Computed example of a mutant assay.
Amino acid sequence: MMKPKPFLRRAMWLSLLSVSALSFSSPSFSADASAQGDVPSLTLDLENVTVSGLSSGGYMATQFQLAHSDWVKGVGVIAGGPYFCAKGDITTALAQCVNRVEGEIDLEALNKKAAQYEAEGKIASLSNMKDAKVWLFHGTQDTRVIAQVSDLLFEQYKLWTDTPNITYVNDKPMAHLFPTENNGVNCMKSESPFIGNCDYDAAGAMLSHLFEELSTPDEELSGKLHSVDQQNAAGSDAKTLASEGFVYVPASCAQGEPCRAHISFHGCNQYADAVGDAYTTETGLNEWADDNNIVVLYPQAKKSLFMPLNPQGCWDWWGYASSDYANRDGAQIRAVKKLLFSLNSEPSSINVPGSINE
């Protein structure tokens, strides 16, 4: 089949983002003015990191975890689809990976791509996935990323990961958003900031699966949300990221206690300039992190009305920033890794591309 002409491809890019995850117009806000700039010195366990994300952030969480499954040991995905679903092509992403599936998704071909990347050293060994902890969620009222797409992600993980390590929650009547106990908008509507008042603590359910023996959080937060300079930390790899990212640091971690690290990827139209501090403060992740010595990194993508085109501020899960978007060589994956490692006060034995360890 002939590829569409450039002006048609541009229209398709815009069309994809208008029907895909978190694809509604939202007002522009400033990032949380209370976020503090100086991140305290941290001692992080960077050999047992976990990641999670919503929608485009869910796709990104899977990509990041497979790229670095040697030290990213758990992943949570809300309303995401199978690894490499878009195959680096906007037309495929639009036709098969969000609100409809035209034809049949060839899961075997997607898995072969992962095996190819493994053989080329572009992702970590897939054998690491056997013991990984995986938590998946799809709301029954979600029409932005349909159930068939999320079901295929579940099937894909079952090929790599021991089934007892996988939890798939797919029986909750909730729309396309991040479910919480009492924060956000009507749970049945996908509206900005795409955090839902659902009487369901997705953050707690997810983290309790990814980590063992967590303490139930109390009502007080001891820690603080800090801003981080993404451009300074990640250099040229951060070209498609916002200037500022965020990190929640519990008081215990700020005082020097060893802490775990979790990365949370926002969805489309959920970056800080669009929703303020809603995603970085209202999902419930900080409450659980606060009482369990977990530092939460909230990297930020940005919208772009020019090439690379990304008008809804999505994470790259179809190749707008790099043909290597789904592996270790992808600029966004490299940038987020550098950002995480820049938070740690101790040198790490894990290689960071572009660093003195390389």
Rank of each mutant, 00 (worst) to 15 (best):
P193S: 02
D106M: 11
I350G: 03
A93Q: 07
S215C: 05
S252G: 05
A147H: 15
A234S: 11
S18F: 01
Y248I: 05
Q63P: 02
I146M: 00
G284K: 01
A86M: 04
L339D: 13
Q312D: 07
Q230K: 09
N128W: 05
A124R: 03
T143I: 13
W317S: 06
V72N: 00
W71F: 15
A93I: 00
A278Y: 12
N286I: 02
D38M: 12
C314P: 03
E102K: 11
K302A: 06
G330F: 11
C259H: 06
S342L: 09
T163E: 12
S222Q: 10
E346A: 12
L46R: 14
S236F: 09
L22P: 02
S41T: 09
G184S: 04
Q255N: 15
S208D: 12
D277P: 11
M60Y: 09
R10V: 08
V75D: 01
D291T: 10
L309I: 13
W160G: 12
L214T: 06
V77D: 02
N128M: 02
A274G: 07
H138Q: 13
S28G: 11
S28Q: 13
A234W: 05
A233T: 01
E282V: 09
G139P: 04
P6H: 10
A203C: 08
K337R: 12
G80E: 06
T163M: 09
Q231P: 01
S304G: 07
F154T: 03
A79M: 00
E108V: 05
D324W: 10
K337C: 02
Q300L: 08
V39K: 00
K87T: 00
W315S: 04
S208R: 14
Q231H: 15
R9C: 03
F137K: 06
Q255K: 13
V49E: 01
N165D: 10
Y271K: 01
H138D: 01
S69M: 10
P40E: 03
D277Y: 12
Q300C: 10
L14M: 13
S23K: 01
A33F: 14
P173Q: 02
G235H: 06
P299F: 10
A93N: 04
N351E: 14
E287V: 00
E108S: 13
T240I: 08
V98I: 11
Q36V: 15
P347H: 08
S56Q: 05
A86P: 09
D89M: 07
V275N: 06
A242T: 00
M174K: 08
L126C: 03
Y59R: 07
A326D: 07
A242G: 08
A175W: 07
D106H: 12
A238F: 04
Q63M: 10
D229Q: 05
C259T: 03
K130H: 14
S322K: 10
K189V: 15
L44A: 08
S322P: 12
L340S: 06
G76T: 03
L285N: 10
H226V: 00
D229N: 13
D273P: 10
P311Y: 05
A132F: 01
M174P: 04
D32P: 11
S28F: 12
T167K: 15
K337N: 07
Y298N: 11
T143V: 13
C268T: 02
A331C: 13
C314T: 01
V352S: 05
D291L: 01
L54F: 15
M174H: 14
V49W: 03
S20E: 00
